[in-house]
Nucleic acid binder design. Structure first.
Lengths: 295, 295
DNA sequence: AAGAGCTTATAAAATTATTTTATATGTAAG
DNA sequence: CTTACATATAAAATAATTTTATAAGCTCTT
């Protein structure tokens, strides 16, 4: 039984055509026929029904069940290859979302440089939801993720590093800047918002606040760049809603808390695949991050 | 790349000897040599170091990492085969631990018989921890499990059906039988216990109570048979500690609650593999069980 | 209703890959 | 220095898959 047979079957389920799968793999059509027949013999079942009268391919319950397992097997095999390649190159792919990068990576990088570990780390900058997907696909080894729920994929191991509330960021000249004690979200009905679009957690958080308060905030602009966002805020064009970890180090912007009883929290977690073996470097990185967050 | 190569590698990690693995699979020794070399070429890495000076086999970090994935892949493949075989035979292997069987299976069986589903179900009677292992190995499809924690394996999907406290069961002639309101566990220091040994949840629960109360109960006998246990209790030989679901339908035995503030709960859950596809029969069974528990 | 066009199946030949056989090499122990 | 044990190597044998060529089933068209 060749591993190839699994690839063939997987594509057959996706493409529902023997000949298209053959074209896809640059093999002849009978190759696919015999591969599927091999699998059916091995499993002693019918995986697909070739309904030529309606020119369609019906996947039997066995076939559907098997497709699930095949997807797992092929993913595991691809993850192996990617993971071992990085292991050989002594490269750790470390995912970090922009918001967290802005606030934490300078510190993390400094600590890593002291330990001469920076060269082994390749930074992958992407939004948390994308990093999550790439972790599952084995493309990155370790990631910091920002979320607002505690949900976890079974294949991922997650350690919560901290949680911070969301705040309102506004120009020091904005009238609300005086309200150091904070504001209720409902008080922001008339405000212009500029929001951070590159984080599922942030867009989701603002959606939750909006629904709880039964109004739609006036969003005049969305940006994927926190710096640009902050510049706009400093110019008093609009206010923004960001997690506390995004607090910029500048004196023309004030942040005030939100006083609503129920509000989402921005959870920062360190995540890796459950069946990923941590190398010494990776364990050291975990230690560095743990220290930075907890001491 | 043959699937066989994964089996060879897996055994090599376990047996740490090329020739022993060859003997294990009834193939010649060079077969293993070349299989491992194939894998090493494919992954472009060294998986094992043949240290002939010390006559030992060292598994490299890549090899260890890969071994993890290989174990997953092979398990998935075996699960596929077992699962599809049952699917073809229209057989559902349903695991149930003795305690839960005693209290619930009569009702479940009755409901299933009404729906003419009993013939499709093969009952697997075993302790929860064994059922859990067999679920993971793909040997059974669905199980009721009794636990005292909410911990869950990532590969298993678990639905909590109910939780019940533990109680003390004693003869109607036992002095404590008058204490209908219940007793504190600490009051049982002088009592003779006979305990149910076939349930990790039960032995664990009594251990927890013992530790909390800083004493070791006087266990005069352990049994794997709840009926025998109850007969001993009826004879006033000893008292026992069981979850409420085990309550027998007989009038010579009294059960009283435990009054301790902190005490474990016996959680009954319905469990199946996350990537297991539910057949119509299985969905119907889920419905039956859900109805019995919640209505 | 016959043929074109599309899809999948079948069988034999060709190809490719793995396994065996036979042997070599390296190391420890006697 | 020889034996024993473990793994590697190379060529031959074997086994498996893939290709080629062709058939068969079905729909649609003319």
């Amino acid at each position: 039984m060749y591993l190839h047979d699994f690839e063939y079957f997987n594509q057959l389920i996706l493409q529902k055509s023997f000949s298209k799968v053959a074209a896809y793999f640059n093999v002849s059509q009978p190759t696919i026929s015999s591969a599927i027949k091999r699998l059916e013999n091995e499993l002693d079942t019918t995986l697909v029904i070739r309904d030529r009268s309606h020119n369609e391919l019906i996947v039997t319950p066995s076939g559907q069940q098997f497709a699930q397992h095949v997807a797992t097997i092929l993913n595991e095999w691809r993850v192996s290859k990617a993971e071992i390649e990085r292991l050989n190159r002594q490269q750790l792919f470390f995912g970090i979302p922009p918001i967290i990068q802005n606030s934490y990576f300078a510190k993390i990088a400094h600590a890593l440089q002291q330990r001469q570990m920076l060269a082994e780390i390749t930074l992958v900058e992407a939004e948390s939801s994308i990093l999550r997907r790439r972790l599952l696909a084995g493309e990155i080894d370790l990631a910091l993720l920002g979320t607002i729920t505690n949900d976890n994929d079974p294949e991922l191991s997650r350690t919560e590093l901290g949680r911070s509330p969301f705040r309102i960021f506004l120009s020091k000249d904005h009238p609300l800047a005086q309200k150091k004690a904070g504001v209720y979200f409902a008080d922001l009905k008339k405000e212009n918002f500029i929001i951070f679009a590159s984080s599922f957690a942030h867009t989701e958080a603002i959606r939750i606040m909006a629904r709880q308060n039964h109004f739609t905030p006036k969003i005049i602009f969305q940006s994927h760049d926190v710096n640009f966002l902050m510049n706009m805020v400093a110019e008093n064009v609009a206010i923004t809603f960001l997690s506390e970890v995004a607090t910029p180090n500048r004196d023309d912007i004030i942040s005030i808390p939100i006083l609503d009883e129920a509000q989402p929290m921005f959870i920062t977690s360190l995540v890796y695949r459950t069946n990923h073996m941590l190398t010494p470097t990776q364990q050291a990185l975990l230690g560095v991050i743990d220290e930075l967050y907890h001491h």
